[in-house]
Design a binder for these strands. Structure first.
Lengths: 143, 143
DNA sequence: TATTGTTATACTCTATAACTATA
DNA sequence: TATAGTTATAGAGTATAACAATA
């Protein structure tokens, strides 16, 4: 395998970026989600572990007041609960409720539905290539 | 190559979707764009061809009043121009200006910068695999 | 004094409804 | 009567600034 030139790497990066963004866009357009995108992101984080609003704001790169509002919305829908932190009276611990887990799963299913139908139309060889590419894309997205 | 089961296809679709959305998210977070996302989308469409606000609204799946506002913002920045349609007095033709083209190119360059740095860290073999995957992803995103 | 979280306030993007002009 | 575009108005998400409670 010959080395690639910088120009070839740049062209690949451009095309790969466009392809990923096109797929993301289609997924968003094709699925009608149970919760709004910014709420969904928070549900994903809370499924990993309960967190403080401050942590959520840092992870999602929004201001603390915005996260307060987002958590309020999710709490009103019964998708998350707030609890005082026994170790630090300033902190609040936000957790996913069973309904929140359900909303998360439903949204993921809706997003997967379109993608699955598209992937199913590819040949087994093409699917296998994408299976390997998926691992690389996850590495690309890691910091 | 053995056929894949429906469950394997679904698993691939899920992981591939997540990978694409993670990459898109990182691209958006890592680059500081010259214009807002919804404005950028419109610039991309106008780079393909001049269009009516109605067409833009349909393509971008927003309401006509929202597109009026978006076009107003772009026009105030000097990135697009409005012109009357000589064939239909009700219609307006929105076109990209040289400044608009420049803003489009700058935004694309900013988005590519991070992606290129990440792709450059892969081996030539891995880059080649992603080059093939890119073509498949574009097919997946096509309707 | 620093940090967590909220409230107050304003700006932006979105939508629906209503209006104007043209076909 | 139907369509393109705009204006009017309201709702939701975001931000900064200011405040309360705790460390």
């Amino acid at each position: 395998m010959a080395d690639t030139t910088p120009a070839e790497v740049a062209e690949l990066a451009t095309q790969l970026r466009l392809a990923c963004m096109r797929v993301s866009r289609r997924v968003r357009f094709e699925s009608v989600d149970a919760v709004a995108p910014h709420q969904f992101s928070v549900l994903v984080r809370l499924a990993e572990a309960p967190r403080n609003p401050r942590e959520l704001a840092d992870i999602e790169k929004v201001s603390p007041p915005s996260m307060t509002r987002t958590v309020n919305g999710l709490a009103e829908q019964g998708l998350v609960t707030r609890a005082p932190d026994p170790d630090d009276g300033r902190c609040v611990i936000v957790s996913l409720t069973p309904d929140g887990r359900e909303a998360l799963d439903e949204t993921r299913a809706a997003r997967d539905a379109w993608m699955t139908s598209r992937v199913a139309e590819l040949t087994p060889a093409e699917q296998d290539l994408l299976r390997q590419a998926t691992l690389l894309l996850h590495r690309v997205a890691d910091r």
